[in-house]
Nucleic acid binder design. Structure first.
Length: 897
RNA sequence: GGGCGAUUAGCUCAGUUGGUUAGAGCGCUUCCUUGACAUGGAAGAGGUCACAGAUUCGAGUUCUGUAUCGCCCACCA
């Protein structure tokens, strides 16, 4: 076996082999309960960041575990077309050539986007493969694929015909840079330090009188059609029916009364701009005022802005303030903090803008989705997200689904120029549905990307066609995602699931934390604080990345990352490699041969040593812990259990014990120990495989557990997940709690002995003698059998085990549950300092003993506490008393000298 | 403005239904090139569990309030 563990080449090798043998693919007919996860489709423009890495590692753990458990498990991968983001990328490239999309025209532009996708669209998919993601790549989907596009059209037509999709003029979030409407979720509110401008509007017919309005966006005054006051506001009673002169433009506007206006804010008078503010729009409707739109789609001012026509909105704001100041119409300007929407794709400040858009009525869709979560048919993990979901769903607003871009699913609505008919239909009709005229045209807009993503759990399985996959795998099982897309995606998938499949899309939603840098900021490319998973993989390996990430991520908690965290996984990998190397060396150089591929696994006929029993019991615990914790989405606990078991149980104790056995002459013991090592190690590799797939697969073969050759059937990825040995089995093997406790206590006495050595500064290279005085003959016998390994682990020259031992000189001593241990050091020990050492320890014991005694003296505790708690305290008191007594005895012997 | 999360060792964090002596990794101290592994081993030091109350025989854990930090949601100009 190679001394050096070359992780990266191992990882590349195995991924290729797994793919070559099609091991991630599962047909829906080959038996086993279904288990299905769909990937949260990353943007086709995306590059892998730590958030993706965490997300996909978790899913990979789940899918690998279920696969090993014999489930018919599939993980459907894919990407979404990311309408706005992708269009932006391609437009940027065009700009480099001095062209715009209009220069190309719609058809040529879309062709160009497809070409871009051919070339770059696989980036993130390939990166997922580096991570080890065992997706069923044969099922890879793209939201613009034929099948998924068909699903989108089908859904649109159905909702349209049902009256759940409508078109209308409303104020929407408009991104002036991307030149399109956005949904509410796509507008991210960012707190900004803005200004509140107090502007004076002259009252018509009275040159001395002004009213003062407050606004954060002075440029919108150009679109004002009224000013409003609260009808109950006494201050402005006399303004009723008055006319106001709009500054700059000189237009006469009216004063209206509306309950919306709160007398406390600003001046109690509001300018009304229906085309540029949602509240004003509503007021405009109530008071029958025609909106005046003063802005173009790109954020520049239009004709209605008069002298400001052509200016950018922010430039216009500056200029209009200069002009107003000159005219003496600015009362004051205050600092004002407020949240401004920003485009989630390009971060430009969103402009509320009146425009004609398509909307989905969400209320009816939300009802069954709310019910399902309330009834627990869909569960959020951690549960707190349930509330977040329900609150949003219960206050859901209509979804603006039309986008004024070209890359995406074009809205399947057609209009007849002849008769004016409007209808929705799949495919490309040639004639008007109503009058048969050929003079028809399709809506220019495309759909929100999420309008295809929300169908993902069933569209990827082939819907609207009915097929076996869909029947078998729907509803899917787990959805693993980050909290950021609960509204965008999770909630909408649930609604679509009910509307189109009549059932939940998945049963559990596991929301993992956000990956942040070590100062707590969300990792993002624009902040420049992201750790690139690929460079971590190059530096540490994918297994190291996976293990480390999982180890430090508590269920649903945010993760704070820095480069050094990945050493955990790397070091663990190295440790495993070397443990394996120790075992192969016994066979390569030591001339030993194990009994079977993976060692024996039935110990009924084997005479086990206490240490054998101990490790087998701990292995059973580890199997149970790993399985249980993954079932509960407690991945960090699963990783931790494995780390603790393999490193601190197997390597620290069992391997050290084995060294002693292998050094001895008992051939049967050697054989048994080697077999048990292989049994334990191979089982551990299985347990670790979901988290560290590569090193486990490599060791599986290197260690010969796969049998001859590297046949597909023998890969670890196809091997069955281990079951923990039950109590009955353990009993049959003679593995009892007593004997396991004995081994723990034996370890304790070794530690006490080592502490003596360390306390007295006896170098490890110096061989010393130890004397052990067990409490009983029975313990003495057990210890005598184990004296070889005890001697080795203490690095002792000699050990004497004698229950009747009476030390005749001053020597360092300590006690454990099994008895006392002495380290004779000729002439080095001063009675007084040794006394002091023992007294200190006794004092500490007595402190504990005092606490326990008090507790047991408290009748409230004894009467009210659970029986186990009381028993436990009693046992502990016993133990402390015992230990104190032993310590005191040591002290006594010392005093006699 | 509403909601949520966090506050435990020098650092980053675990601690699931209240009940042993509050744990891990990193860092730190001392020692060790012992034939699996220095990406390692052995032994240590280090914590009034943010603060104040309440419930309880018993609180890191439950409740209330306070403080600090962070996140999400929100049409008051």
């Amino acid at each position: 076996m190679e001394k050096h563990y070359d992780a990266r080449s191992i990882e590349k090798k195995w991924y290729e082999l797994w793919q070559k043998h099609n091991l991630f693919h599962s047909e829906c007919t080959d038996g086993g309960e279904p288990y299905c996860i769909v990937i949260p489709p990353p943007n086709v423009t995306g590059i892998l960041h730590m958030g993706h890495a965490l997300n996909n590692v978790i899913q990979d753990i789940l899918i690998r575990l279920r696969r090993m458990q014999g489930r018919n498990a599939i993980w459907i991968p894919g990407t979404d077309h990311a309408g706005i983001a992708t269009q932006n990328v391609v437009e940027r490239a065009l700009k480099g050539e001095g062209k715009s999309r209009e220069d190309l025209g719609r058809a040529a532009f879309i062709e160009r986007v497809w070409a871009w996708r051919e070339e770059y669209g696989n980036t993130i998919i390939n990166q997922l493969k580096c991570l080890g993601a065992s997706c069923d790549w044969q099922r890879e989907r793209f939201t613009m694929d034929k099948g998924l596009s068909d699903a989108v059209a089908e859904v649109f037509v159905r909702l349209y015909d049902k009256g759940l999709i409508h078109r209308g003029n409303y104020i929407v979030n408009w991104c002036p840079r991307c030149h399109t409407a956005l949904s509410d979720e796509e507008s991210e509110h960012v707190e900004e330090n803005g200004k509140l401008y107090y502007l004076k509007y002259p009252v018509a017919g009275d040159d001395k009188r002004f009213i003062v309005v407050a606004t954060t966006r002075p440029e919108t005054l150009l679109g004002d059609v009224a000013v409003a006051v609260n009808p109950r506001d006494e201050r402005f009673k006399d303004l009723k029916g008055a006319k106001i002169i709009l500054p700059v433009l000189g237009r006469e506007i009216v004063v209206i009364e509306d309950d919306f206006v709160s007398p406390e804010f600003g001046t109690g008078i509001v300018k009304v701009t229906p085309a540029h503010d949602p509240n004003d729009f509503a007021m405009g409707l109530r008071h029958n005022l025609a909106p005046i739109n003063v802005m173009n789609g790109d954020g520049t001012m239009n004709e209605a802005a008069g002298p400001y026509k052509g200016l950018d909105r922010f430039e216009c704001r500056k200029r209009i303030m200069v002009d107003l100041k000159e005219a003496g119409l600015v009362e004051k300007i205050e600092d004002h903090k407020h949240a401004v929407g920003h485009c989630y794709r390009c971060n430009t400040a969103v402009e509320p803008r009146l425009s004609r858009q398509w909307f989905v009525r969400m209320k009816p869709l939300a009802e069954p989705a709310i019910k399902a979560v309330k009834e627990g048919r869909i569960q959020f993990i951690p549960a707190r997200w349930t509330k977040v979901y329900l609150e949003w769903m219960e206050n859901i607003r209509d979804w603006c689904i039309s986008r004024q871009i070209w890359w995406g699913h074009r809205i399947p609505v057609f209009y007849c120029k002849t008769c004016g008919a409007e209808w929705s239909e799949k495919g490309t009709p040639e004639k008007c549905k109503k009058c048969g005229s050929a003079s028809i045209y399709q809506d220019e807009d495309v759909l929100d990307t999420w309008f295809s993503s929300w169908l993902w759990p069933f569209s990827t399985l082939g819907w609207p066609e009915k097929n076996d996959d869909l029947k078998f795998y729907y509803p899917t099982n787990d959805l693993v995602t980050a909290s950021e897309i609960i509204f965008f995606w999770v909630a909408r998938m649930i609604m679509a699931g009910f509307e189109f499949m009549g059932d939940v899309p998945f049963r559990k939603v596991y929301i993992h934390g956000t990956v942040r840098d070590d100062s707590g900021l969300k990792m993002s490319k624009s902040l420049g604080n992201s750790i690139d998973p690929l460079s971590i993989i190059e530096e540490f390996s994918a297994d190291a990345l996976r293990f480390s990430l999982i180890m430090i991520t508590a269920t649903g908690q945010d993760v704070y990352l820095s480069n050094d965290k990945f050493e955990i996984g790397r070091n663990f990998g190295t440790k495993l490699w070397n443990a394996a190397r120790f075992m192969t060396m016994q066979e390569e150089n030591g001339g030993m041969r194990r009994s079977a591929n993976r060692g024996v696994s039935d110990f009924s006929a084997v005479q086990l040593s206490p240490d054998d029993k101990h490790i087998i019991m701990r292995l059973a615990d580890a199997i149970a812990a790993v399985t249980d914790n993954i079932d509960k989405y407690r991945f960090n606990d699963a990783a931790h259990a494995l780390y603790e078991f393999m490193w601190h149980q197997f390597c620290d104790w069992y391997v050290e014990y084995a060294k002693d056995v292998f050094g001895g002459g008992d051939e049967a013991a050697k054989q048994r120990t080697l077999d048990i090592m292989h049994h334990v190690f191979s089982t551990s590799l299985l347990l670790l495989h979901p988290i560290m797939p590569f090193i486990t697969e490599e060791l599986w073969h290197v260690m010969g557990y796969a049998g001859a050759g590297d046949g597909v059937e023998n890969m670890i990825i196809k091997t069955r997940w281990p079951e923990p040995a039950g109590t009955a089995v353990l009993e049959r093997w003679g593995i009892t709690k007593d004997i396991v406790d004995y081994v723990d206590s034996k370890h304790e006495i070794i530690r006490v002995g080592r502490t003596l050595r360390s306390d007295y500064g006896v170098l490890p290279s110096k061989k010393v003698d130890y004397l052990i005085k067990p409490d009983s003959e029975k313990t003495a016998e057990l210890l005598k059998v184990d004296s070889g390994m005890i001697k080795a682990l203490l690095r002792a020259e000699n050990i004497t085990i004698d229950p009747k031992l009476v030390p005749e000189k001053v020597m360092p001593s300590g006690v454990g549950k099994l008895g006392a241990i002495y380290m004779p050091l000729a002439g080095l020990i001063d009675v007084e300092s040794e006394k002091k050492r023992l007294l200190d320890q006794i004092a500490r014991l007595k402190e504990d003993l005092g606490r326990v005694t008090n507790k047991l003296a408290n009748m409230d505790f004894v009467n009210k506490a659970k029986k186990e708690a009381v028993d436990h305290q009693r046992a502990r008191k016993e133990e402390l008393l015992e230990k104190t007594k032993k310590m005191e005895k040591l002290l006594e012997t010392l005093s006699c000298m």
